[in-house]
Amino acid sequence: MHVTIRQLDKAIPLVCCPHRGPYRQIGQAFDALDSWTSGQAFEPARVFALYYDDPSATPPEALHSAAGVALPADTPLGDGLERAEIPSGRYAVLLHKGPYPALEVSYRWLFEQWLPNSGETQIDAPCIEEYLNTPHDVAPQELLTEIWVPLQAR
């Protein structure tokens, strides 16, 4: 596994569908977001998930996350949707290849192996996943997901 440090110079505005509960059930929020976007005159180019809580310290039913698409900040919102943004700043980025359930292995390596030995400090901000392709387009073993961990500025 290989981690790169990415500097995001400009915040990315998002339209999000919030989710409460186990992170593995965020698909419900993506389904609602997909239903909304399919009725719009645009096709979102970038798809994200925001994960606000540490699942090792928060009960599954209390976890807060959001499914999001990158759209201009003035995009009209549908029912149940909200605005969010990925803030500018530094991020550790790990590319995960494979099915979504296997993301847990990449997260564990990132937080248990790489981060403690990296000299970097995570800041109190959501972890992010960017989905570079979808299960509609490729087989599960070919899915590409970037995991972004927000880092302290240098």
Rank of each mutant, 00 (worst) to 15 (best):
G78D: 05
P87I: 07
L81K: 00
T134N: 15
G119S: 07
E104Y: 08
A57Q: 14
A125L: 10
D79H: 14
R90T: 02
A29F: 13
F42M: 14
M1L: 12
P101E: 06
S106W: 11
R24T: 14
V149M: 09
A84Y: 09
F48S: 02
P44C: 05
A62V: 08
H64R: 14
V69K: 00
Y131H: 13
G80F: 05
W36N: 04
A66I: 05
L151R: 03
L33P: 13
K10F: 14
L50G: 00
P59R: 15
L63G: 07
H136C: 06
D79A: 11
V105N: 10
E85D: 10
A139R: 15
A29V: 08
W36E: 08
Y91F: 15
H96L: 05
Y23Q: 03
P60V: 11
Q141H: 13
I147E: 08
S38N: 06
V138T: 14
Q28P: 02
I12D: 02
T4A: 12
P18T: 05
L71D: 04
A32W: 02
S38H: 15
R24L: 05
C17D: 09
Y107D: 10
D34S: 06
K97I: 15
Y23W: 14
Y23V: 00
P55M: 10
E43Q: 12
W148N: 00
T58K: 07
P135T: 07
Q7R: 14
G78S: 02
T145Y: 10
I26A: 02
G78R: 00
W114L: 01
R83C: 10
L14D: 08
Q40E: 09
L151P: 05
R6S: 03
A67L: 06
A11R: 13
W148E: 00
V47P: 00
Y91C: 01
R24W: 01
A29D: 05
P150S: 02
A49S: 14
Y91P: 05
C127S: 12
